[in-house]
Amino acid sequence: MSLFTSPEDARARLAAGDYLADAHIATTVFLADALGKPLLVEGPAGVGKTELAKAVAAATGADLVRLQCYEGLDEGRALYEWNYRKQLLRIQATPEGQDWNATHDDIFSDEFLLARPLLTAIRRTEPTVLLIDETDKTDVEVEGLLLEVLSDFQVTIPELGTVTAARRPFVVLTSNATRELSEALKRRCLYLYLDYPTPERERDIVLAQVPGITDALAEQLVRTVATLRALDLKKSPSIAETLDWARTLLALEADALDEEAIARTLGVVLKHVSDQNRAAKELGLPTAELG
């Protein structure tokens, strides 16, 4: 039943899927699986929270079921819904003389049930990774719903009875921390805070994700990004933006990251004028092209 045999195994298999986990991430993923607990991943935007879930799915050969959270998400969208149009059709098409109880039993059967991500993930018998993305965007009521589903891995449908997970899915919740999740939810989850990576790890990520980049350029790139992150910026560059930057430089066929190359491409990583001005000032860039 266990997906991984040890933290080292988890690290190696995630790396095979091009997700470079450090020891901390690997241990946490291993524990989430071994203890059968949901994993709550928090951190700034663009550090690979969603990617982690995808990488776990890829590494274990499991299917990914994704629930994208948004404001106003409700039970009908997250858990299950009755397909009432089809039920109506069924009632209208009832043969003459069929007794109501039979019809009732008929229309509240599996055929008329629209399973949404949470129910789908619980009912699957194959290995599954359930990704609940951007949990902080939902309303507080949905958190209550998640609590019930995630602590017992079962869903009660009044007309059908209780559906219990045949095989516990590996659950990953992600959050950008735009709002504090409730203590109750946090208590039930293992917690992983993903921060911006160390320059060494980021360099490896760039090398793995951007084929064709030279070691020297990657090194220069991640050092510059680290310098940018140390400034007081409105929005620090994320890993995703570092990768975009690397691709941009490749496309421009720049072989070194000098002042001029940075000034030309700064818009790829910094998306506020005040941030760009500040970076230009602190890094001593030629400011003519900015503004």
């Binding site: 933290p7 020891a23 241990t27 946490t28 524990l31 989430a32 709550l40 293992l190 917690y191 992983l192």
Partner: peptide, 9 residues
């Protein structure tokens, strides 16, 4: 890592 992930939220 084990302590951090279970205790520090």
């Amino acid at each position: 890592a084990a302590y951090a992930t279970t205790l520090v939220k």
